[in-house]
């Protein structure tokens, strides 16, 4: 297998794992934290697809701003998802 293909595969696996973890987490704070990892990996994927504008937007908005806004919202409301 080529090196580049292997790198892409590992990145896609990372994306899928973080997405599943963010959806299935009961602790909402954990879900937000994992979702910020998802945004970071997604920005890396955009850059590997040669779309640096999108990578910049994803890194700035997805990983930076929305994570903190989500955390503020969780602190103001409730942390655990109800069963």
């Amino acid at each position: 297998m080529k090196m580049g293909t292997a790198l892409n595969l590992v990145l896609i696996l990372l994306l899928l794992t973080t997405a599943l973890l963010a959806v299935t987490a009961r602790d909402l704070l954990a879900a937000v934290v994992v979702f910020s990892v998802y945004s970071l990996i997604m920005a890396l994927m955009w850059q590997r697809l040669q779309a640096p504008d999108l990578a910049l937007t994803e890194a700035a908005v997805g990983a930076g701003v929305t994570t903190v806004l989500f955390v503020i919202t969780i602190f103001k409301t409730r942390r655990r998802e109800e069963e």
């Binding site: 850059q47 640096p52 890194a59 994570t67």
Partner: peptide, 22 residues
């Protein structure tokens, strides 16, 4: 593509922001 380095700088800045704020 050397101009992709801007993305790396934004990454470093935003990681600092997220970690310290959280």
């Amino acid at each position: 593509e050397n101009y992709f380095l801007d993305v790396a700088i934004v990454y470093a800045l935003l990681l600092f922001v997220v970690t310290v704020a959280l």
